[in-house]
Amino acid sequence: MTVLSMKNLGVAVAEQQILHGVDLEVASGEVHAVMGPNGAGKSTLSNAIMGKAGYQITSGSLELDGQDLSTLPTWARAQAGLFLAMQYPTEVPGVSVRETLELALAERSSQEIDVQSRLLEEAEKIGLANELLERALNVDMSGGEKKRNETAQLAVLDPQIAVLDELDSGLDIDALRACAERIEGMTEQGLGVLCITHYHRLLDYLPADHVHILVGGRIVESGGPELAVELEAEGYSRFIESDDESEGVSVAIGGRSQQTSSSISEADDPFADPLA
């Protein structure tokens, strides 16, 4: 059993406090969804967990099985068992997914893993075209291809805890289903998931055990899957009333609540602009 634990986690970016004391615990096999409107601090949370430069922990703790992660470089956090599926996977010209994973796995253990066969296997499962595995990382790939690629890497690397940063953004419904169901399968093998998302639709295929609402850098409510359903119907407006954050954040949230009050079928449209 592995536990990723945050206690009173505060994070600042460029000296601006974004997260104000987040408490979360994700254990093996669990799926935790962190939902929130634009500007709530969702991506800050994922970047801070992974130790991206510029994301400064200002208070509290971040631990994996009791080990302090806050002083570890990004790669050591990954080696300790974390994985971050990025919202916008970075293009890395001239570097293949295979060599990346080979180098990562070689660092973890001396046991030889046939990365290429594993990648082909995973690509098959999630409908990622084989020729994309030959390409440089994320170069000339569509949004959906990038997310499938992230999912294939996640499956081959087989971490303890995966942080999924807006896995559903830019994904059509087929790709979403394929990626989410593959990850759901991994949770049955013990993968713990922290799933950061704006929308409910990802949770249709990757059901969450726990749902947390992040607004203004704070978790304002936690509950079971029913909370996500409630959110789908009512939007974030209920949580914003208690929010005393800056006006800029409120304005953005106001826009969101208008959209979510429209019909559910429209909100489910995979081609809808998530930033509209």
């Binding site: 790669w75 990954a78 080696q79 060599e99 994973l101």
Partner: peptide, 17 residues
């Protein structure tokens, strides 16, 4: 950062880039 987030050690990640 992308390469490191897969678990590639910092010096190797830099060389790959």
């Amino acid at each position: 950062f992308y390469l490191e987030s897969r678990g590639v050690p910092a010096d190797i990640a830099e060389a790959l880039v």
